Amino acid sequence: MHFVDAKGILSQLNGMNVYRGCTHGCIYCDSRSACYGFTHAFEDIEVKRNAPQLLEKALRSKRRKCMIGTGAMCDPYMHCEEELQITRKCLELIERYEFGAAIQTKSDRILRDLDLLKRINEKTKCVVQMTLTTYDEELCRILEPNVCTTGRRAQVLEILRDEGIPTVVWLSPILPFLNDTKENIEGILEYCVRAKVRGIICFGMGMTLREGDREYYYQALDRHFPGLRQKYHQKYGYAYELASDRNGELMGIFRSVCQRHGILHDVDACFRYLHEFPEKYEQLTLF
């Protein structure tokens, strides 16, 4: 872990990452890709120590309220957040200035900030996005080794449901030859239905691989699933998009369950929901 003073904190779409890198160890993580320009080891977390100060300045300068997103690139609830609490400090500012929050994570550490999530949601809107990929708990511990399993994340979704906080699930990635099964998709969808999630984001049954991410993934396959790397090479070569052979069947199951239970599942509709700020709060007060 090392500390930097960042020059800015919010993107053009009002997203922020207070950390760069991750310690969750997910074997498929796209954020490892070379295109993101990491100049340090991925597990050597870069901490933007001045993130709260930058965020407060940015929020005070905005003419209109909006949703503030975090977690799209690096999880805001990694192990170091327990001590540093930078994510919490930023949420305190979002709540104080009455903006909305859209938080993406795999970690049950988010429950530490349940008080803040509830206050933000009471004032404006708070949406928690939870990534679910693998119903089988043992397989999940291999694919996502340093973070709570899918079963625990499902419990978090139910707690948020009971507290009135809307949730969206990322059903991605689905790894060919590993979790692209009917049992896996149906198990995850059962969790989503039980938790009454607002939407599920799924780009199709498959994954992406590019330089940096690809090498790490294949090394993990060699450790845990000997011979599987060769199947990937034979089928996909060096393709960026790796669609499962079961994509049609599994997407049919996905759409059917979502339609039956009234769950948003069009990707564009899900993103509109995440970015929509409640109209009555859009204009800043003068006081």
Score class of each variant (00 low, 15 high):
residue 249 E to G: 02
residue 279 E to Y: 07
residue 63 R to I: 02
residue 113 D to S: 11
residue 96 R to N: 08
residue 198 R to L: 05
residue 66 C to I: 00
residue 166 P to M: 03
residue 281 Y to H: 12
residue 113 D to I: 13
residue 286 L to P: 01
residue 175 L to V: 06
residue 253 I to A: 07
residue 181 T to E: 12
residue 274 L to F: 02
residue 168 V to K: 04
residue 268 D to K: 14
residue 231 K to G: 07
residue 133 T to Y: 09
residue 116 L to S: 13
residue 284 L to G: 07
residue 200 I to Q: 13
residue 71 G to T: 02
residue 52 P to W: 08
residue 160 L to F: 06
residue 145 P to K: 00
residue 216 Y to E: 13
residue 124 T to F: 14
residue 167 T to V: 01
residue 19 Y to N: 01
residue 4 V to H: 03
residue 68 I to D: 07
residue 50 N to S: 05
residue 223 R to G: 00
residue 160 L to D: 12
residue 67 M to N: 15
residue 67 M to P: 11
residue 240 Y to K: 14
residue 145 P to F: 03
residue 271 F to V: 11
residue 143 L to Y: 07
residue 82 E to I: 10
residue 119 R to V: 13
residue 187 G to E: 04
residue 17 N to P: 04
residue 287 F to Q: 09
residue 41 A to G: 08
residue 268 D to S: 11
residue 269 A to N: 03
residue 271 F to D: 02
residue 198 R to F: 05
residue 89 K to T: 06
residue 280 K to W: 08
residue 188 I to V: 11
residue 64 R to L: 12
residue 108 D to I: 06
residue 10 L to V: 09
residue 180 D to G: 13
residue 287 F to L: 14
residue 28 Y to W: 09
residue 152 R to K: 14
residue 264 L to I: 15
residue 232 Y to E: 00
residue 128 V to A: 05
residue 159 I to G: 00
residue 249 E to M: 01
residue 246 R to Q: 10
residue 183 E to P: 02
residue 17 N to A: 02
residue 278 P to H: 06
residue 58 A to P: 05
residue 6 A to C: 06
residue 194 R to L: 03
residue 217 Y to D: 00
residue 146 N to M: 03
residue 285 T to L: 15
residue 161 R to L: 14
residue 180 D to Q: 14
residue 241 E to H: 15
residue 256 S to L: 05
residue 64 R to E: 15
residue 101 A to Q: 08
residue 253 I to K: 07
residue 150 T to W: 02
residue 214 R to V: 04
residue 163 E to M: 11
residue 72 A to K: 04
residue 180 D to P: 11
residue 162 D to C: 05
residue 82 E to L: 15
residue 12 Q to A: 15
residue 110 I to W: 10
residue 81 E to A: 00
residue 213 D to Y: 03
residue 213 D to F: 02
residue 49 R to F: 02
residue 246 R to G: 06
residue 84 L to P: 08
residue 85 Q to C: 07
residue 133 T to N: 09
residue 107 S to G: 09
residue 63 R to K: 12
residue 167 T to M: 09
residue 227 G to N: 02
residue 277 F to D: 10
residue 214 R to P: 03
residue 148 C to G: 02
residue 280 K to G: 03
residue 27 I to W: 03
residue 63 R to E: 14
residue 151 G to R: 15
residue 226 P to M: 08
residue 84 L to D: 11
residue 34 A to F: 10
residue 153 R to W: 08
residue 2 H to R: 12
residue 18 V to M: 06
residue 113 D to K: 12
residue 66 C to D: 04
residue 227 G to Y: 03
residue 4 V to Q: 04
residue 36 Y to N: 13
residue 38 F to N: 09
residue 13 L to K: 09
